[in-house]
Design a protein around this nucleic acid. Structure first.
Lengths: 194, 194
DNA sequence: GTCTATAATCCGATAGAC
DNA sequence: GTCTATCGGATTATAGAC
């Protein structure tokens, strides 16, 4: 092992460069220069450019999944959607380059790592779905409950919630960065009232 | 003018190729082959690869904006969000390759055409915001209205609604295409109830 | 484990025939 | 207006020194 973690230097540089130029537009030369290492070191630590970015994207979804789980633990089910949404917005803000990269790549089904990425994306979507399901269950067991028989929430609802947060977060961070995070959160939740 | 519209052949081929490989990964050779014309014809009809894809992306947002406007005309303000959401889902389904391309590119701020694309994206976001605003106004003027003073909906709410629809539509069309559109629409709107 | 130097390929764009 | 042929440059990946 080297004195500093060369592998981490490389992945962080890859995120920075690819956020600006896209994955196809990010050359291994640029990444090596941004990381402060020689190009040969990239190919010692990663089998190929594809292997490098598979690692980058997969770890991005894992980070987001971890933030969701942490926010879920400390919240009542009925408050969990707001708590999870807030944690998602904060995570995207703290990893803006990675968020841009994930948004650009998440629906690309041609990459060599498409299967691995869909597993990672789906694990996040399922988390959102479960948070929404539990909030609805907690609400329908209150005295105010009515008799509507609603269709069960599916992954599609989770994907919609994820999409709303990602769309609002990137609109916010790229084009209206002066808003406080709570105001963005209020706008996301208000968009669907009624 | 040629017997067939070569320019349109080229833009349609560019959408197909770029949906698979991304814009940076789509070579002018591939596009020419997919369009059934020579590469020289690409450079006769478009000044550059950048100019070609600026046209492609901009026209995609214009098509979506037109579908939104058409759905808005025939609906009561309180029903407009559902009508507009349905029209958006149908438009994305009918132009899946273009939708994938737009999703991959909409948050790329480094492109030469970034300013033009942000104007096009913003015009769609504003349409969603206005539909949501009018629905809320129509609802608050009913007898059931309460005294809550809610913050006015902003572009961020429109971006959230747009993101929810795009996220749900691509999850649907790419990974769960057997669902009927009405079920997808129900899931999107149900995700935010409460 | 990291470096330099180079091989082999591919790309965007242009020139000029027809 | 569309074609073929080609230029100059950039890219991924590898070889071998240290």
């Amino acid at each position: 092992m080297a004195r500093v973690n060369t592998k981490q230097l490389i992945t962080e540089a890859a995120v920075r460069v690819a956020a600006r130029h896209g994955i196809s537009g990010a050359s291994m030369d640029q990444i090596a220069e941004a990381a402060g290492v020689a190009k040969g070191s990239l190919y010692y630590n990663f089998a190929s450019k594809d292997a490098l970015f598979e690692e980058v994207i997969r770890s991005g979804f894992e980070r987001l999944a971890g933030a969701i789980d942490a926010a879920r633990e400390g919240a009542d089910p009925s408050d969990a959607p707001r708590a999870v949404a807030g944690a998602t917005l904060e995570t995207l803000r703290g990893n803006l380059d990675l968020a841009k990269l994930m948004a650009s790549e998440v629906f690309r089904t041609d990459r060599p790592w498409a299967d691995a990425m869909e597993i990672a994306r789906s694990s996040v979507v399922v988390r959102f779905r479960d948070v929404l399901r539990e909030a609805r269950a907690a609400r329908s067991s209150t005295p105010i409950s009515n008799g509507d028989s609603l269709a069960e929430l599916t992954e599609t609802a989770g994907a919609a919630f994820f999409g709303a947060l990602a769309g609002a977060a990137l609109d916010w961070l790229l084009f209206r960065p002066d808003q406080p995070v709570d105001r963005v959160l209020d706008q996301v939740l208000a968009a669907f009232e009624g």
